[in-house]
Amino acid sequence: MKSLQDSIRRIINHIDYIVGLQIRIFYVFTLIFSAIISYAFYSSPSMSLSLLPFFFFIYVALISALATEPVDELSKGTIQVYLATGLTRKEYYSAWLFGGVVFQTLVFLLIYSIPALIIDPSILVVPVRQYGLNVSLGQLLIICALQTIYYGTIGMTIGAFTKRRSLAVFAVFLLMVIIPFSIGLLASIFTPSLGEGIFKGITLICNQLLYVAISSYSMVGVFGMNPFLESVIVLVFFDIIFILLSYMFWREVEV
């Protein structure tokens, strides 16, 4: 019991350290985005929703960069500095998972939730019904947050396997942008009606970005459950899979 408490203490201390190192960049982005959102809530609610995919993309990029930082520490040897103090590999991994991915995802959620809490909390629960969606902004944020964790852990896993950070970041980019974008393009080419709808200048990019942000939402609906619930279950499932995968590697990594 004592050793578990000690272990948790060390994890928390390392999370604290990691967050302290990286928080500045997140502060800057969060404050800027939140200011835009606050203003949008007052002046143009639909804009606040349209901006979600863009903010989501930037955060996933930031979080993937952060989640692959331990890979960088591994290849450079900085990890030895921490592990030599008695921090175990599992503790090191847990600290990065929580400090690098989960905590920053929480920060991402604040962009929308704090202005909404201040301006009008009902913004978060009222159905959005835009772009063919039928979820509330709050639900959409939960989906995005679960996806952020998913991409972050993918970055951690691939980085751990390859020991190359750039490859990990590329893998996230591939999964998040390139593949969905190409599928969307192909689909629009081969499905004339869809193509007609999609190929309208800037709307193409908007649709694609949004499609990616809500891709898990769009993909489900096959189990006959509430689509939101289904997408949450699917995302949580994949989050757990990738957390386990990256954990399996990190607990035995040679440094």
């Binding site: 272990s7 900085t78 500095v81």
Partner: peptide, 26 residues
């Protein structure tokens, strides 16, 4: 027994690479 062993060892690596923080913070 990672923690039990390493917590009793002090290690100075040959080519240490430290994070770019303040000495005090580290």
């Amino acid at each position: 027994e990672e923690h039990e062993v390493r917590s009793k060892i002090g290690y100075l690596p040959e080519k240490p690479i430290y994070p770019q923080v303040k000495v005090w913070s580290l």
